[in-house]
Every structure is written in C-alpha cells, then in structure tokens.
Write a protein that binds this DNA or RNA. Structure first.
Lengths: 69, 69
DNA sequence: TAAAAATGTAAAATGGACTTGACATTATAT
DNA sequence: ATATAATGTCAAGTCCATTTTACATTTTTA
C-alpha cells in the first residue's frame, strides 16, 4: 500500500527512528510501511496520523480498485 | 476494539450478511468486529467507513490508553 | 406457533503485520 | 576524508486478523 509517511516525516524533519519510537513500533516497521512492503494495522495508522496531526486518509492511500483486503 | 458498526448498520437497516457482502468479507468477520473480538485491518476499516459514508474515526473507537498496537 | 431470517459460537487453518538482530549502503557533518 | 547518523536488506519467529464450515440460539414474520 502506498503512503505519504516519508513526505510528512521529511516535512517535519523527523527521522524514521524518531517516528518509530513516537508510535511505539520498530524502525523496521516504518521502513516497511514507507517502502510499501505491507499495510499498517488500523491502530498504527491512527497513531501515525495523530502524530502528524492529520487524518488517516491524508497519509494512507486507498487504491479503490486493487484492495483485496 | 470498540466500534459503532452495529449502530450504523441498524440505523441503515442493513443485515450483517449484507454488510459482509458489501465490503467483501465473511459474516464471521463482521460479527467478530461488532463483538470486539479483534480489530479490523486498515483497508477493511476504510471500506466499512466508506460504506456508511463516514470517516474511519466515526466508526472505530480508539482508546488512546490501552492501544498496544 | 411454526418457518425463516438474523445473529451467535467454536475450532482449525492461513496469511500477513510486526519484532528482533545482524549487516550493508547512503547521506551528513566535522 | 572519516566518523556518525540515517536508511535499507534479509531472514526467522510470533501473534492475530480473516476464512471456512458446521451448528445453536434469538428474532421476525406469516
């Protein structure tokens, strides 16, 4: 799944490690999300959105078509 | 996790099966979500919210405290 | 009040989200 | 130029979201 995590992160001059700590996951998790390796859980998505003070839909991009789940 | 799925569902006079079909999951999944057995995935949450034409945060209730993930 | 529809429970299987740890590469700063 | 910070890769392991199937209970309706 495609996200705007790295855009928001760079805009706020936040490092992957900092974001990871802030939302309580591993750096690996942030890397994998940014590189589209897998999809965030609902709670993690919510935490990340909250961290950047935006809505979930602002960061996570839903491709209405190919969303198998 | 707590949700307002059944509220929205009843308000719209939609059956669990209908909702399940609409968002392309099993009836079991809807039952389990409504009864707080587990948390929806991000994509499923998005689909359900879209189905009811509301935001994810309107249906899924995040208890800032005890959210382990 | 009986048939049908809606909701629920149980249990086993699968896939994927997230972790951990170790190492490689790229950017930044001194 | 070199140390350090930041980003990335790989692989194995755990846990839980979701499926499937089959059956039980509750609610609705004729």
């Amino acid at each position: 799944m495609q996200t705007r995590i790295s855009e928001y992160r760079k805009a706020g001059k936040i490092t992957q490690s900092e974001l990871a700590d802030a939302v309580n996951v591993t750096r690996q998790t942030i890397i994998s999300l940014e590189n589209g390796k897998y999809k965030a859980s609902l709670v993690l998505a919510h935490k990340i959105a909250q961290f950047f003070k935006v809505g979930i839909d602002d960061i996570f991009i839903f491709n209405e078509e190919e969303e198998n789940l």
